[in-house]
Design a protein around this nucleic acid. Structure first.
Lengths: 227, 227
DNA sequence: TCCAAACGGATAAATTCGCTTCGTTTGAGG
DNA sequence: CCTCAAACGAAGCGAATTTATCCGTTTGGA
């Protein structure tokens, strides 16, 4: 069996801290976030980052894959809800909450792995179900498509005000800002209920978003097995 | 009298192109946009930028002041509308359209001049009127405050999808993306109409946003007279 | 008590940025 | 058709970042 893991526990903790830190820093600094900032925020040395990920891009790819997992889980939990509207609303809330607008800036800057593309497809299917169920129950305005809702999530996930306050360490105000955004989200959700005038223009094609995850410029990079 | 302006016309055209380019680049690249990128996008040399503005910050300050003017004009035009709801809706639409999410990332990175602070105060007053009028006419949900609407505008102004497409020069898709965002905006506007359940939480304090423009770290920098 | 595994931070190498300097082009007045 | 000041574009400079590596130190199970 032998000496395999003298500080295995610490390594795993650091791995988690790194991913959490990367998400926060990405949300605040945008796509040009530096590895030094991420490592510092995680409270680890830079070498610990490069011991797990061969490059900055690989870290971001891993982060994307994990976020896609969260989307999938959120959709599954939404479908378990008995009330179709509550299920959809909780899904939207959850997606806005955990993504924190971190993935938007990343789009187009990293190579898309096969794994990521597959997870996106799965997530899209689940969401289509979620929306179809709400439509069938008549609790969602008929002219709102899954794409409309995806875009709404992306729009609301990124909050310039919260990012500014975060950047300036105004910890006294971010609670108020988060509360304020909750109200904005609630307003948008109300706009999704039935009983509103027909939306103008044609519904956006799902390809608009899908293209982001399907476009795989180079042979997919595979992450090394871990754990 | 004498030889005063051999190429005055070209200079003025370039000035305008610079400001327009700065807004676009800021929206796409965020607050770390470089002067080289801005000058290139405007189709002028770097020196032409520094001949008009003593520094990068001064260019951004001027841009902010101009945007605040646009906000004010949009609010005034909204108030001229006979229909209180139409006036408010057009105001929101206009603000989202021309700001393009350029000012959000700028917040907190440049010094706030007295001029900017004054213009923000004026813009805030006009908007309060706009909202009060809509409230009085009963065409706006009573629990939505001016702050709620300001935040909504800021949220919807910045579109990660459009920015990504812009960055990648996918000119074939940005029209579709803009149309898609129009739908998102329409949904949010519907959520502002009366007849929805009470918003949870307390209304955000106006200070949340105002603080951004009132905070004047150093003595205000004045722009050199031009024209 | 070992010693492999994991650690952190200094550091190398390359890039990027804000800004200046400089030689060239332009176009209205004479 | 010259003249020449005003405006131009772009190469270049030093300072500051950024990615990634190297190496001496710490840790904790066998």
């Amino acid at each position: 069996m032998a000496r395999k893991a003298p500080r295995h526990a610490e390594a795993e903790r650091n791995d988690h801290a790194l991913l959490e830190a990367a998400k926060k820093v990405l949300a605040v600094d945008g796509a040009h976030a530096s590895v030094a900032t991420i490592a510092a925020r995680a409270g680890v040395g830079i070498a610990s980052l490069y011991r797990r990920y061969r490059s900055k891009d690989e870290l971001f790819q891993h982060l994307c894959a994990l976020s896609l997992d969260q989307w999938i889980r959120a959709a599954e939990r939404g479908l378990q809800h008995d009330d179709p509207w509550e299920g959809l609303a909780h899904y939207i809330d959850a997606c806005i909450e955990f993504s924190g607008g971190a993935l938007g800036p990343l789009a187009g800057t990293i190579a898309v792995t096969d794994e990521m593309a597959a997870k996106f497809t799965r997530s899209e299917e689940l969401m289509r179900d979620l929306v179809a169920r709400a439509h069938a129950a008549g609790v969602l305005r008929p002219d709102a498509t899954a794409m409309d809702i995806s875009l709404l999530i992306e729009q609301l996930g990124k909050s310039p005000l919260i990012e500014q306050l975060d950047r300036q360490d105004r910890t006294d105000l971010i609670d108020a800002a988060r509360n304020a955004r909750k109200r904005t989200i609630a307003i948008a959700l109300d706009g999704l209920r039935p009983g509103h005038p027909q939306l103008s223009g044609t519904a956006p094609s799902p390809a608009l978003l899908a293209e982001r995850w399907e476009h795989a410029p180079r042979g997919s990079t595979r992450l090394p097995e871990r754990s």
